[in-house]
Nucleic acid binder design. Structure first.
Lengths: 158, 158
DNA sequence: AAAGATTGATCCTTCAATCTTC
DNA sequence: GAAGATTGAAGGATCAATCTTT
């Protein structure tokens, strides 16, 4: 049993730990509020894209916009279709492709869900002043700048 | 929320959206790095508690420390035990209770995993100065102050 | 062969129901 | 009956393999 790892990590971890907790807090609040409408964050993401598209979208396109695996979309749409919130329609030109479309019920649920999400988000941000929101956004942007540019020197982490 | 609904809405969402993305970024990096050791963030959380405990912990106690459902621990420990990283031992005084204990292999994997996590975390924070880290932590704390005190006036969100 | 979608396996998480022990 | 743990069902996500169409 060698010496306890971390210690130097304590300082760093605390910032990232807060970040994780904050992310989960937002997630949990949204999930809980959407559950009242029989919705979830994952379902709302699909409904959102479909509503913004003002028409049908290929399943692969949905996967791309939500940056997730195509098989994930297959199952998500399965559940949404079982609830009649979304409909699968054959793609016009290409018989390989399948498009997803909002139903009337789906559009109504989306409206309700979007209103709920906006309320939860506004609620969470009441603790921060306008200046603080700007400052937080800026700091997160600097952290996120990492996303497309993994540091050059040495292997990232192994 | 009395002024310009659309604009403030977009503004709020962008801060929260960044928060979610940042949270996922951290998660994904940790998950990818730990995968090289056959570990995951969830498994590391269990290993961490067991290592800190310097002995055996009841499964219910683990669920409490990780603030998750007890059934989650059951399955997590199932998988860890299948890999011989953790061992289930009968609790001394109470025949209802079962304790989990790190094996030697488990302790070794934990050491490797902890080192990897520390590296990933340090790596992610290189983009922020010491001052920025402090500022970010403070802002997140204010956001988190919401956690145990859901605003009193009016129904939270429905 | 490559693109689009699905299926099957696995992991992570929760809830409700169950079983044993207290 | 209540506490501790497990099981079963389900949502959510990923990857590898498969099937159809291009």
């Amino acid at each position: 049993m060698q010496s306890v790892p971390e210690l130097t990590g304590a300082h760093e971890a605390s910032v990232l730990a807060r970040l994780e907790r904050a992310g989960h807090l937002v997630d949990d609040r949204l999930e809980a509020a959407l559950a009242d409408h029989g919705l979830s964050v994952a379902k709302m993401a699909v409904l959102n894209e479909l509503a913004r598209a003002e028409g049908a979208l290929p399943l692969g396109g949905l996967a791309e916009r939500l940056t997730c695996a195509r098989s994930n979309i297959t199952q998500l749409v399965d559940r949404l279709e079982a609830e009649s919130l979304v409909r699968r329609v054959p793609a016009p030109g290409d018989r390989r492709s399948i498009h997803a479309q909002l139903t009337e019920a789906g559009r109504e649920r989306w409206v309700a869900g979007a209103a709920t999400m906006a309320r939860v988000e506004a609620d969470l941000l009441t603790r921060l002043s306008a200046d603080e929101r700007v400052a937080l956004a800026a700091l997160l942007d600097r952290l996120l700048s990492n996303e497309l540019a993994p540091p050059p020197p040495g292997p990232p982490a192994r």
